[in-house]
Write a protein that binds this DNA or RNA. Sequence first.
RNA 1: CAUUUCAGUCACGCCG
Length: 369
Amino acid sequence: VSVANTLVSMYAKCGSLDNALSVFYDIYEPNVVSWTTLIVAYVHLKLCESAILFFSQMLLEGVLPNIITFLSIISACASQEKLLNGMHIHAQVVACGFELDVSIGNALISLYGKYKNLENAKMIFDKMPTRDKVSWNSLIASYAQLGHSKEALKLLRDMREGGMSLDRVTLVSVLEACAIELDLDEGKQVHAHICGEWADLDSILGSALISMYAKCGSLQDSEAVFNKVHDRSVVFWTSMISAYVQHEQSHQSIQIFEQMKLEGTIPDDLALYTALSACFGQNGLDRGKWMHAGIVGSREKIEALVSNALLSMYSKCGSIRDAKNVFKRLTKKSVVTWTTMITACAQSGQPNQALRFFAQMQLDGVPPN
RNA sequence: CAUUUCAGUCACGCCG
């Protein structure tokens, strides 16, 4: 069984769910590790519904979940919206007597954070018999992501007073909090702390610093960070592209985008989205068309996010005609897609066309929000 | 043999 489990895990990590599944189904009596491995595979592919289904199936077959199973299933629940699943799992954790485990507590903190339920997150935290760095990080991240940055920064202070050392995860969350608060001073202090603690920045901390500085209005600092990091991920590049967009520097932004491609980093949807949003102003339309052509030439299908970005780009650049052309060729149109078109027409003196789109949208089965 | 926290992002409107 162990050998088969390892195989399942290996196939899953290579992205071959089919192979993983067929090995799993050939296991005579799958044990708790087999099931957990499968659940994790689905969670990593964001197929959380299925992960939860496998969990139920496992229970039906009389296999008892252990702590690791619960950790996996809690993270499955955290990445989907259904509150009920999460509450249900929490109850089961308690019933199995696992609720005092540190890792379980950590996962639950994060779960309630994702559910925007900070009271419960804090309650779990307070009730934990022992806390580790992850406990603090989870709670701080929850506060930071929900925009409660003051509390996040306060927790940081408590954490340090309690003698906990900070790690990269802590700092990323704190930088996010600084960005929301537009607290440049605190952000710089965190940056100084980072420089004192590690010889070089990695691309995750780098991205967080770039966007913190950009949001706090200090583009020069973003640039300085950008130049210091050499192991650049797509996210890292995108942060810099976005920083220039926020400061309305279309040209610089596109230049970074081009440099990224030259250095061999393949842009993902969000990178394309951001680069397209950099096409505005004087040469905006030309840059946008050029980019559009590049996108069409380099990928099979265009994702929703990217096509929406194309629509906004064309309408921002004043070419409703091009926007309509893109729009016509889309197979899936969301409310956002329709609203982009409606707004484009409305703002360019074509109110009747806007109303026509509005009517068509409803005929298409998309309800207005 | 499997496991918990972290970075770039969406249209419109409202408030700051």
